[in-house]
Design a protein around this nucleic acid. Structure first.
Lengths: 138, 138
DNA sequence: TTAAATGCAAATAATTTGCAGCATA
DNA sequence: TATGCTGCAAATTATTTGCATTTAA
């Protein structure tokens, strides 16, 4: 999804778009790397030199309110952002720090302890060693 | 578990103990409130007025290394600490901010996508509205 | 033209670090 | 006594905010 496509996508959702917003959304959607604000500034700063930290934070909060990105609190204590809103879990490799998306979720309807609770979201982080790093170990 | 019992518990695990460490561990173990460093300082400061933030952070890192507490990255972006090491999930009520422990977990052995991955830990956060707050709504 | 978004810089908040003094083995 | 812990203060890092300027409808 390039910048033009990102603009259309956002506008179709009734979300007011600017160049910065489209660039940021396009980046998030393409890279799927669950970046922090700092990572985004580093990468996008090459393309848009005046892009500021404040705009990234503002835009992420704006996108979150609009429901087009989710915020992940990962075990580095930092906020990571994700344009994939399907319910999925994240596997963090302790060796290479890659974050893998996996499309498994808890069936909260079937959990007794959640009876009479209203569930809005679930966030699942798993960590360990990924397939690639295990291969290299040998 | 009072301070004396906490001391014994930690020493049985070969962990060097001080008064501060025992007070902190006892607090965590009793209150089961998943506090942040700041919450601990507020509560424990009444009992141990000289207790410092640095000691709390140092102690939590020390306990984590020793494997007697786990760190939870909750959706407020803060680190919360938990002396309950059994694999369990956390439900955060968006109304009253209570964190509930629930003893359900993912059976990671049964997840295809995790084949050839080595799993160390899983962290599950669910949020929504708790039973009590739903009752009050009516 | 006007309301809202951006970008800079300063402010705040959480966490970490350096180091002097203190406590414990 | 020696090693390592504590507590203070300063430093660092992430995030937020205030405000002047720019942008887009």
């Amino acid at each position: 999804m390039n910048v033009t496509e990102a603009t259309k996508y956002l506008e179709n959702k009734g979300i007011k778009t600017t160049y910065q917003r489209a660039v940021i959304f396009s980046y998030l959607n393409n890279k799927k790397n669950h970046p922090t604000a700092d990572m985004m500034l580093n990468d996008l700063g090459k393309k848009v030199p005046t892009l500021s930290r404040a705009t990234i934070y503002n835009t992420m909060e704006f996108f979150r309110e609009k429901g087009v990105v989710q915020v992940l609190n990962m075990d580095d204590g930092l906020r990571h952002y994700d344009a994939d809103l399907s319910t999925h879990l994240h596997f963090h490799c302790n060796k290479c720090d890659t974050i893998y998306d996996m499309y498994t979720q808890l069936d909260t309807d079937k959990i007794d302890e959640l009876k009479d609770f209203e569930v809005h979201n679930q966030f699942i982080n798993i960590n360990g060693i990924c397939k690639n790093c295990k291969k290299k170990e040998k």
